[in-house]
Amino acid sequence: MAELLRVQNLSHHYYSHSGWLGRKRVEAVKHVSFTLEPSETIAILGESGSGKSTLAKILSGMTKPSSGDIFVNGEGLIFGDYQRRCRLIRMIFQDPHTSLNPNTTIGRILEAPLLLNTEHDNLQRQKKIDEVLENVGLLRDHSEFYPSMLSSAQQQRLSLARALILNPKVIVSDGGIAAQDISLRAQMANIMLEQQRRFGLSYVIVTNDLDLVQHLADKVMLMHQGEAVEYCDNHTFFDNPAHELSKRLLRSYNSRNEFSYKSRTDPST
């Protein structure tokens, strides 16, 4: 299949302070490459500080990479070219409460990217908004509401709707679904799967929830100190991982499941 997203040799370093005015280089992402096909999902795992968020920020165009390239459909993406990028890659932010302006109606929130990036007239925009609201399981009437009038589950859906409205090819989510509680997470996962089935969307999800990874992802990338130490498909990762860190991760994951399994079948209760 034709590849949709190709990330090549992406690196990023920050300068953090050392002493009062001195600085120190922190390699946050080192030579990361991966590819993603339409309708595929890649999950990015790793311990804290391994560079997952940095990678997500680079993909969504919030951070300029120190080196490396991103290609979508074979064409290179240039940092700062928001017009093109936001039609291709969109980000779901972690916390909908803070990323949604409380003083604007939902209709306006969804309209803003259309106004900025498309030539649609009023009617077309309205149609698009209705359509996308329906797709994520909200109602047409919701466009008159303010974000604070929605429950957190609905706010989550709204931030997905905002990401979807420009018909991007790839959606990047950093903690967006994983930080939610189980029923929300399941709802969001279901909506995302549905969108993927219908429109061939691809997802890059940053999460440490291995259940979710197992359920949603086609590929898995494990990061450690900025490097991608494991990059393989879902089955290989869960059945036969190569890197020591993956094995350790799976061990603590499995021991947790076994624990509960034991306690549920404990004959004494």
Partner: peptide, 14 residues
């Protein structure tokens, strides 16, 4: 994998 997950319908009311 990739089938809908089981969960309670609807969401926490406002």
């Amino acid at each position: 994998a990739k089938t809908p997950m089981k969960n309670l319908a609807g969401s926490v009311p406002l």
